[in-house]
Structures are given as C-alpha cells and as structure tokens.
Computed example of a mutant assay.
Amino acid sequence: MRLRPLLGAAAGAALLLLTGATAATATAATATAAPVAYEAVTVDSVGRIAADGTVTFSGTYRCQSSSGPVFVSSSVSQGVSTTRHGIGGTRAVCDGAEHRWVNTGRPMPGALAPGAAHVEATLMELRTFSGLPLPHFHATHGQAVTLTQD
C-alpha cells in the first residue's frame, strides 16, 4: 500500500528535475539571443511634405500570418492639436519577414507644416466574423518625427 505514494513522489520529483533542466536550457538560450518581434511596425524618424502638400511617411513591419487582408495605416498630428490626419494605407504581406511600407496622403491645405510631428502606424487585419469584416490589430507604434519640405 505504501508503494503507490512513493512511486507518485518519485515521478513528481523526476518531472520537476526534467522541467527545471528544460527551463534552464531555455533561459540560457534566450539570454544569448535578442528576442525577435513577430508582430511589429516601425516609423522612420523623418517624413516629407511635397510642394503640393502631399505627405509621405515610411517604416517597416513584420507579421507572421493572417486569414484576411492586412494593411499598414498611418496618421499624424502636429503641435498641441488633437486632430489626427490619416496618411494613406499600404497592403501588407504576413510571411514572417521584415518589409518596408510607404504611405502618402494629402491632408487639408495648411494642416501640416515642416517641423516636429507625431506619427502613429498600425498593422491591422480585416478578419471575417459572421460575414462581417472586423479589425484585428497586429501591432501599433507611435513615433516623434521631423517633417521636412521637399
């Protein structure tokens, strides 16, 4: 009768030792390599304003997989204004590799000027749920940028 509790305790100790060894190996492996973000979007630190008022922002993105169309959108605000201006959208490919995105748009005349601004980029997928396309956000990133006149 006492054999069963001893076997259970021995199995538990063996499992604990195996789990500890695996965790130690995993910790050693992750300590030497920087983690890779599989869902990420970045914004370059400089944007451009063309003579006709067209604004261009760019950056990189990475996503693993998707079941629907994926886009990189961007918006910009400047100064103390709470108004955000949407600047284009780029179709994204989710294959695990890092890709470049470039968005252009023309906000209302005089809405933006060369100088400091804040850009937010979003990596968003449209997933169908009960026949409706609903947003699924893969990544978002805000970045202080400098707008330069072309």
Rank of each mutant, 00 (worst) to 15 (best):
M1F: 08
R2Y: 05
R4M: 09
L6Y: 05
L6M: 13
L7P: 02
L7Y: 04
A9V: 13
A11P: 00
A11W: 02
A11S: 15
A13I: 10
L15K: 03
L16W: 09
L17K: 07
L17I: 08
L18M: 10
G20D: 03
A21N: 12
A24Q: 08
A26L: 14
A26D: 05
A28L: 12
T30R: 13
A31F: 01
T32H: 09
A33T: 13
A33W: 01
E39I: 01
A40V: 09
V41A: 08
S45T: 06
S45G: 05
V46H: 10
R48I: 03
I49H: 11
D52I: 06
T54E: 10
V55H: 07
V55R: 09
V55T: 07
T56W: 03
S58F: 00
S58W: 00
S58E: 04
G59H: 04
C63Y: 04
C63A: 13
C63W: 03
S66R: 07
S66C: 09
P69S: 14
P69A: 15
P69H: 02
F71Q: 13
F71D: 06
S74E: 03
S77D: 01
S77W: 00
Q78L: 00
Q78C: 01
G79T: 07
G79W: 02
V80D: 14
T82H: 06
T82L: 10
R84K: 12
I87D: 07
I87H: 08
G89S: 15
T90L: 02
T90V: 09
R91L: 09
R91M: 11
A92G: 14
A92L: 10
V93G: 14
V93T: 14
C94D: 06
D95Y: 04
G96F: 04
G96V: 02
G96D: 05
H99C: 14
W101S: 15
V102W: 03
N103P: 10
T104M: 10
G105Y: 06
M108L: 12
M108S: 15
A111H: 03
A111D: 00
H118C: 12
V119I: 11
E120V: 15
T122N: 12
M124P: 03
E125T: 14
T128H: 13
G131R: 07
P133K: 08
F137V: 15
A139E: 04
H141R: 13
V145N: 09
L147I: 00
L147S: 14
L147C: 04
D150R: 01
